[in-house]
């Protein structure tokens, strides 16, 4: 298949790889941020308790 017909699929492949990887990174970072917030509040609670 030559350029004209093939390019949508080629672009599709590269875009989908980037898209999936980026989504995964964003999800991981969001979860990490949430976890850090929870950890901070918990360690405060631990300090209060002594």
């Amino acid at each position: 298949m030559e350029f004209q017909e093939a390019w949508p699929y080629v672009v599709g492949v590269y875009m989908s790889i980037w898209a999936v990887l980026l989504i995964y990174v964003v999800v991981l970072q969001k979860k990490l941020a949430a976890v850090k917030r929870e950890l901070a509040s918990l360690s405060k609670a631990v300090e209060r308790k002594g």
Binding site: V35, A45, V46, K49
Partner: peptide, 26 residues
């Protein structure tokens, strides 16, 4: 890139466990 994803995922798992542990301690 995959290795960096792996490290992030591992951090997340470890942090989760710390949280569970702290909650129980409290």
């Amino acid at each position: 890139f995959a290795t960096s994803l792996y490290i992030m995922r591992l951090d997340l798992l470890r942090a989760r466990e710390d949280i569970e542990y702290l909650k129980e301690e409290l």
